[in-house]
Design a protein around this nucleic acid. Structure first.
Lengths: 204, 204
DNA sequence: CTAGGTTTCCTACAACCGTTAGGCAATTCG
DNA sequence: CGAATTGCCTAACGGTTGTAGGAAACCTAG
C-alpha cells in the first residue's frame, strides 16, 4: 500500500545525525529537508512541526543514551559501576555533542492547557527521561545507600556529572591546566568518596 | 550632536529583560524591536545582527552575575563563603532564569578564520567569563587549597553548582521527594567537606 | 536665528524559514 | 487492470533576518 520512502524513524535519526554535524540549533525543517534531498513540506508527512521534530530527537537521543549507559553498567558495583556509568555518559557527550545537547536543551512544555493534547514525542521524551533516571538510581543503589538518601544521591551524582560534561563541552576547561582529561578521574574519585560516605555515615 | 534615543547599552539591557520574560530563545531582533516600540531595522544601528545581540546579552549578564557573587562573598571564608557564593548564583538563576540561560547557552565561536575580526561582544563575553572564573578561584583559595589543586577544585565546585542549578531549572528535580530546596544545602555540605579534604589531605 | 552636520529612525525590499493546501505520480492490493 | 493508498511535489502566506537609502529630529557654530 502506497510507495516506500522516508518514515518517521528515519527522519528523526537523520535529524540526530544532523545535530552532531552542525549543532542542535541546525536541527530545523529546511536544513533537514535539504540533507535528506527532499523539499521542506515533505517532512510534514512524518513530523507535525519543528518543535515536534526537536522533541522527538530529544526522546530518540535519550533512549540512545540510556542504551549506552545500560550496557556499560551491566556488571560491577560501587566505584567500578560509577566510573563505567559516568564514562559512558561522558563518552557519549564527547562523541556526539549535538546529541548530548539535545538531551539538555529541550524545555518541558509549561503544561499550559489541560485540554491540549500531549504529543507522542513529549511522552516519549518523558519515558526516555525516566529510563535514564532509573539507571542513575541503579548506580546509587549499588553503593547501598539507604532509601531516604537515594534521591539526594542521584541528584548529587547527576549534577556533578552533567555539570562537568557541560562545562567541558562548552570549552570552559580548555584554557587552564591541567587538561580536562586529567581532572575527570579525580572528580569521580571524590564523587565515589562522597557516595560511600552517604552510604555508611548517618546523615542529620 | 544627533538626536537622542536608544543606545547599545539600553538595547542590550532590554534584551536581557526580554530573556527573563520570554526565555532566551525569544531574544531576537524582531521581538526585541516590538518590545522597544521601534522597527526591526532600527536595531541594526546599535547592534550588528542577531548573534551579536545574543553574545552581547551573554557578556552583559555574565557581568551582572559577577557583580552579584562578588558582593555576596565580600566577607567570610571557607564554608560560609562557599554557601554565600553558591546561593548567590542559584538565587540569580532562579530570579532570572532567562539571564542564567544566556550564560550557558552561548557557544564559543570555533575561531574559524584567523583573519576574521573578533567582535566586541565576544571579547566582552570572554572578559566577563574570566571575571567569574576569578571569583570562583577566590572561593577555592579561602579553603587554603594548594596551588596544584586550585584548578581542579574550581572545576569540581563549578560543575556541581552549575549542574545542580541547570537540572533544577530544567525541572528534573520537580517530580521526586524531597523538594529541591531541601537537598541544596546538603549538596553544599558535601561540597564543603570535599573542598576541605582537598585542602588538607595530600592528593596523589 | 539659521545652516550644517550628525544621529535616529523609517519605508522598501530581498532572502529564507515554518506551515498549510492541494495536486500528481508511484506503488501495492484486489 | 483498476483503485486505493501513500510520498513527494509546487504554490502560496506570514514572519524573520538583514541591506539600502531616505526623511526627520537634534546639537552646535556662525
Amino acid at each position: 500500500m502506497g510507495r516506500p520512502g522516508l518514515n518517521r524513524s528515519a527522519v528523526i535519526a537523520a535529524a540526530a545525525d544532523l545535530a552532531d554535524e552542525l549543532g542542535f540549533d541546525a536541527v530545523t525543517i529546511s536544513v533537514l529537508a535539504r540533507h535528506l534531498g527532499v523539499r521542506s513540506p515533505t517532512l510534514y508527512s512524518h513530523i507535525s512541526g519543528a518543535t515536534d521534530l526537536r522533541t522527538a530527537v530529544t526522546a530518540y537521543v535519550l533512549d540512545e543514551l540510556a542504551d549506552a549507559t545500560s550496557t556499560a553498567i551491566a556488571a560491577g558495583e560501587g566505584r567500578d559501576l560509577l566510573v563505567a556509568y559516568a564514562d559512558a555518559i561522558r563518552d557519549f557527550a564527547r562523541r556526539s555533542s549535538g546529541r548530548y545537547d539535545a538531551t539538555t536543551r529541550q524545555r518541558v512544555p509549561p503544561a499550559s492547557d489541560p485540554a491540549a493534547e500531549i504529543p507522542d514525542s513529549v511522552t516519549a521524551a518523558i519515558t526516555a527521561g525516566r529510563r535514564n533516571a532509573d539507571l542513575a538510581l541503579t548506580v546509587v543503589r549499588s553503593y547501598g545507600i539507604p532509601e531516604t538518601n537515594e534521591t539526594y544521591a542521584v541528584r548529587l551524582m547527576s549534577s556533578l556529572i552533567h555539570g562537568y560534561i557541560t562545562l567541558e563541552l562548552a570549552g570552559t576547561f580548555a584554557h587552564s591546566d591541567p587538561p580536562s582529561e586529567t581532572t575527570w578521574p579525580e572528580v569521580l574519585d571524590d564523587l565515589d568518596r562522597t557516595l560511600t560516605l552517604i552510604a555508611t555515615a548517618e546523615r542529620h
